[in-house]
Structure formats: structure tokens, C-alpha cells
């Protein structure tokens, strides 16, 4: 047999310096790959976040512009004004409500999914994925049509003699839209968590005289906690900052934080106040997620 491979002629004995240089080269390669995205993120997230932060201390001038001189905490102070507090409380409350409703619907569903045969389960999952991928605006608009003045819902309620449902432009409609929009975000992590649980643990629980309910409380639910938390964050976070849904399904009296911030920029032209509100919103999200990761969650 002939030798095909030629040994490279530049050879030397390995030294710690060579090893270090090789490691450095490897690390440079990694950094080189990361660099474009790294710079992009620094530019558009670190720097722009910093700009938002700066703006939040600025003052709105008489013409709707922003003066960057004369920094103050006025914008943050405004958060305690009753009207702003109402918006904040309402947003948190509706986001919380949305999360709870999603959890109540999604948990049994995810469990049900995990007990199906694999083939059935995959098909069922696909049909959960489809709304997840479908245009969010369109899905909210569908509810506008359904809940509308002479839409199918009102027609139906009038037909059975309940009178007009008149849900549109209420908080109920907003929560309905949010639940509709974010339910897949709750189902998927929950399913992932429940599916991982060893069924034999439930059998063991029953063997040790646990009732079905006790098995759920003491075995299934605690073990599925990572999924519950991940799902709750994935629903709560976008609900709190929701803009499209309240704009389409909510009315003037149901202004939520997202719309309120947008108003500060596009209509009221109070950029510093808007910046302060967005910064607070982002902090809430960041703290929530960091707490989750600290607690050892990984399913985000």
C-alpha cells in the first residue's frame, strides 16, 4: 500500500506557548463568528437602551420636542399620578388575568396531549403550532369581526333571546384577544414539561395510596413547575406590553400600558415620559426573567 497522506514538514515539539496560541486562535475564530451579531446587538440594544434611559430624564419642550439638558426625575414622578397608576394597575391586572386563564385552559390540555399516542399527539401538536405561526394581527382582527355590532356572536345571542352581547371595546374583549393570542405560548412549554415527567412516578404515587387529586397536587404539578413558570412568563410578558390587541378590541376606557406608551410618542409627543414608562416596563420583564433563570428554569 502506498501512503496517500504526506506528513506536514513544519513540525515541532508542543510547548505550553504553542498550546496557548492554539487556544487563542480558536477563541479568535469564535469571536470572529460572533462579532457581527455581537456588534449589532450592542448597537441596537445596549446603546439604544441607554438612549431610552437618557431620554427618560429629559424634559419635553413646548413644541413637543425633547430637551436633553436639565435632567430630572419628573417623568418617573408622573408614574404615581392617578391616571398613570390606573393604566399600570389595569395592565398588570389584565395581564395577570390572561396568564391565569391561559394556565387553566392549557394545563389540562397539555396533560391530555401528553397521554395521547405519539402519532395522534404529533398531529394535535401541529394544530397547536398553526395558530402560533399565524399572523397575530389577523387573529385579533378575527375577534373584532366576531364580536362586532352585527357579527356572528351578537346574531347568535340575539337569536336565542339573550340580547346583544356587546363585548367589543370592553376589558373582557381585550382579555379574550390576549388569551387567544398567547394560549399557544402557554401550551407548548407546559406540554414539554409534562411530557418529560416519568409516568411511573404517578403510578408510584397511586401505589402509595395517593388519590388522583393528591397525585396531581403532590407529584404531577410540582414536577411540571418549570413549564408552568416558563409558560406564565411567555404569556405575562407580552400581555403586559400588549399594544395591538387593546387597540383593536379595547375601547377608550381600557387603555393599557402598551398603548399608553405609544400614545406618548405618536400623539402626546411626550418622549421623556414615554421613555421612562418603557424603561420601567423593560425592567419588570428583565427582573421576571432573571428570577426565573436564577431559579434554574431552562425551558424558555
Amino acid at each position: 500500500m502506498k501512503t496517500v497522506v504526506k506528513i506536514d514538514t513544519e513540525t515541532a515539539t508542543a510547548t505550553p506557548e504553542f498550546e496557548k496560541a492554539a487556544l487563542r486562535q480558536e477563541s479568535r475564530r469564535g469571536l470572529f463568528l460572533a462579532l457581527p451579531a455581537y456588534l449589532y446587538l450592542i448597537f441596537f440594544f445596549v446603546i439604544s437602551l441607554f438612549i431610552v434611559f437618557i431620554y427618560s430624564f429629559a424634559t419635553r419642550n413646548r413644541f413637543g420636542g425633547t430637551d436633553l439638558s436639565g435632567w430630572n426625575l419628573d417623568s418617573y414622578a408622573r408614574i404615581s399620578e392617578p391616571i398613570v397608576r390606573d393604566v399600570l394597575f389595569r395592565s398588570v391586572w389584565l395581564a395577570f388575568l390572561t396568564t391565569v386563564i391561559c394556565l387553566v385552559i392549557a394545563y389540562p390540555f397539555a396533560y391530555f396531549l401528553s397521554t395521547r399516542r405519539v402519532a395522534v399527539r404529533n398531529i394535535m401538536l401541529v394544530f397547536v403550532m398553526i395558530p402560533f405561526w399565524t399572523n397575530f394581527l389577523v387573529r385579533n382582527f378575527a375577534w373584532r369581526v366576531i364580536l362586532g355590532n352585527d357579527g356572528p356572536l351578537t346574531n347568535a345571542t340575539e337569536f336565542v333571546g339573550l340580547g346583544s352581547a356587546e363585548l367589543l371595546f370592553t376589558q373582557t374583549a381585550v382579555v379574550l384577544g390576549l388569551v387567544y393570542g398567547y394560549l399557544p405560548f402557554m401550551i407548548l412549554p407546559l406540554y414539554a414539561a409534562i411530557e418529560r415527567i416519568d409516568r411511573r412516578l404517578l403510578e408510584a404515587s397511586r401505589d402509595l395510596y395517593g388519590t388522583g387529586l393528591q397525585s396531581f397536587r403532590h407529584v404531577l404539578f410540582p414536577l411540571s413547575m418549570p413549564g408552568v413558570i416558563a409558560g406564565s412568563i411567555l404569556v405575562f410578558v407580552p400581555s403586559l406590553g400588549a399594544y395591538v390587541t387593546p387597540e383593536i378590541l379595547g375601547g377608550a376606557k381600557t387603555t393599557l400600558l402598551g398603548s399608553y406608551i405609544v400614545t406618548q410618542f405618536l400623539t402626546a409627543r411626550n418622549w421623556p415620559f414615554g421613555a421612562a414608562l418603557s424603561f420601567v416596563l423593560m425592567l419588570v420583564m428583565l427582573v421576571t426573567t432573571i428570577v426565573y433563570f436564577r431559579k434554574g428554569g431552562r425551558t424558555l
Binding site: 497522506v5 506528513i7 513540525t11 508542543a14 505550553p16
Partner: peptide, 24 residues
């Protein structure tokens, strides 16, 4: 992996600093 220290040869040829694609 590259050794931290020492000599590594294959048929008398020092290969300690060569990548796998250069080794027979």
C-alpha cells in the same frame, strides 16, 4: 487536542503541533 508539553512523534516525525488533517 494539542499537548501542553512533551514530544509526540509518529514514525519518527514530530507531530505535536499538527492538526488532525496533517497526521497519518
Amino acid at each position: 487536542e494539542f499537548p501542553t508539553e512533551g514530544s509526540l512523534s509518529i514514525f519518527g516525525q514530530e507531530v505535536g503541533t499538527l492538526t488532525p488533517d496533517k497526521r497519518p
